[in-house]
Design a protein around this nucleic acid. Structure first.
Lengths: 345, 345
DNA sequence: CTGAAAGCGCTTACAG
DNA sequence: CTGAAAGCGCTTACAG
């Protein structure tokens, strides 16, 4: 590979001059400049990235750490991050922790989890990234992000107790509130619930939103209509089975995600009940499947790309802020996608 | 950040000695070694990545170029690649071209497409990656991969006319053959087809496989039962509509992907025809939706993670091979996932 | 406007 | 077994 030195020799100037031209330090005559630029073009010379970084001691590179790239939310968040960073002329180095594929769905109970994150930070630190983004696979309280590296870090799709990290989250409360309100305005008063995993933040926030909406409309939440779930279709199927078999009075089912709604569809269909006619159903997430279910599913879209963009923006804002940067939690609102699974009651 | 030099000072040895210890060049007494290692541990010293790379002039880093990370196939392929590379102690730098999000679905007709790829190669080259993997969003003939950089490069989920690149592909022919054979063995003789976009490799290969299976079982392909499609549910819906309205005789529909199968489900359901009873349906891809459709869809799984692993392996094999490495096309077989959408005829 | 020189943090022959 | 020195390819005061 051709080097600065060789370019300088070919042009009969010093390497400093070539370097100055390359970096736009203007103290060079136009004539020399053009000659050098010409040669650079001819030879296809490219500066050595490593050397440059070693000297400059900053990289204009952001390290992105992902719990697991195969989680449904991750690619879109990463896409948003990269969109914003690219626009602002930053490069990205992505490290995929692959926690779900390595250790199954309960990986955050694995002892090596913390170690892996720490190692990733060490790597990023030795690469001298200018900032770090942690992309979580689901919202939770992350308390294992090392603070001693002193690199600006923002958390995407999760948060931390630490005051040192801003984070960008989904407004699950608002989403569930609006979805419930939508059902109420359609005339539904007895709404059954298929919840997510207990203790999970999405679950708790959506539950809060659900209850708040009922309360504001002077309705009461009926504990007999509330079922646990673990995000997968089977949960919806089982909950729906119990619900129907119990012969309880209800007209709509609010599933805390689309996959469980698919399970509800399955049970209802198998039992000759028509979704959107006999029983109304709503989901959450707006995954691909929501549009393809029959009838198509009314649900809440999570603007994941926007989460990514917002995260990247927060990080750059922090990196370029002069004074003490005020860390914050940013909540992104969800959008109601109205389809065909809810009828007027 | 603490440096080699400071460690050396603290230990009263030369930087060369510390460096040797770090790199396991054994010519150091145990005593010194332990003392130095102790200090390194205490101080939390980490070698400067850039400096090391600058000196060593190789990076143990693989550049991964992705058409678009939000394509359904990409995250899993990338996951496979990273799995293999991590096991072999390589780092990954990922560049997301974001072609689909930038330019819509016909991006490869965009003139800037080639330029973007070239620039990415330039970047990788100046970062001095040891190898490059190009991850395509769908199989096609890629003829715009620059060859002048002289960096070992393997193509994932696509191929090239050039003899300089190995590639890893899905065996669409085999998959379609087996799926067709499966239908035939279930007694279906008149099989309708909802194809993918014309000219697309997946379409052509699956069509070849379909026809080959029919031929081997002495059946004839009926052009009247073959419909075009563009991979989305609407295509399946429309094709199915025409098919039913034409009153043609058939007992099964082979959709070239799961999304179109979802459209077929929709039309059949709306018209009171039961999938898996009145009409059998199979798809291709085994996307999330396949399991959630009612009844669940029999389809071909594309082992995307395996594609990624295989690609990474091919690249490392090439990089470490002594003699002239024989470039090849590797075909990964698909797996039949039998569910509930096909009945015996 | 231009160049000689120091130095970023390492590795690697080489000498002792 | 250990260290002085050169050098990887750049950038950046500084002097002229």
């Amino acid at each position: 590979m051709i080097t600065l030195k060789e370019i300088a020799q070919q042009c009969n100037v010093s390497i400093a001059t070539v370097s100055n031209i390359l970096n736009g330090k203007a103290k060079v005559s136009n004539e020399t400049k053009e000659r050098v630029l010409q040669i650079i073009k001819e030879t296809g010379y490219k500066p050595n990235y490593m050397a440059r970084l070693l000297r400059a001691n900053k990289t204009r590179t952001i390290g992105v750490l992902v719990d697991d790239l195969t989680e449904f939310s991750s690619p879109l968040i990463v896409d948003g991050i990269m969109t914003y960073l690219e626009e602002h002329n930053y490069k990205t180095i992505l490290e995929n922790l692959r926690f779900y594929s390595k250790w199954g769905r309960d990986w955050y109970e694995n002892a090596d989890y913390k170690k892996s994150v720490y190692q990733a930070f060490q790597e990023f630190s030795s690469i001298k990234v200018d900032g770090i983004i942690y992309v979580s696979g689901h919202e939770r309280n992350i308390n294992i992000i090392p603070e001693e590296f002193n690199i600006p870090t923002v958390i995407s799709y999760a948060f931390s107790d630490s005051q040192n990290f801003s984070s960008v989250l989904i407004d699950d409360f608002d989403g569930a509130y609006k979805l419930t309100e939508y059902l109420i305005k359609k005339g539904h008063k007895k709404i059954a619930l298929v919840q997510g995993i207990e203790g999970n933040i999405h679950t708790e926030e959506r539950l809060r939103g659900f209850k708040a909406a009922l309360k504001d409309y002077k309705l009461e939440a009926d504990p007999n209509l509330m079922f646990p779930g673990i995000w997968f279709p089977e949960s919806g199927y089982e909950a729906c089975k119990k619900l129907i078999e119990s012969k309880k009075d209800f007209s709509a089912i609010f599933c805390f995600n689309d996959l469980m709604a698919a399970g509800v569809y399955k049970y209802l269909t198998e039992n000759n009940l028509q979704v959107g006619k006999d029983i109304s159903v709503v989901g959450f997430d707006n995954r691909t499947i929501a549009e393809e279910l029959i009838p198509s599913l009314t649900t809440m879209e999570i603007p994941l790309k926007e989460v990514g963009i917002s995260t990247a923006k927060e990080l750059l804002d922090q990196m370029t802020s002069e004074e003490d940067f005020q860390k914050q939690k940013i909540y992104i609102k969800c959008n109601l996608i109205e389809r065909a699974s809810v009828s007027n009651k």
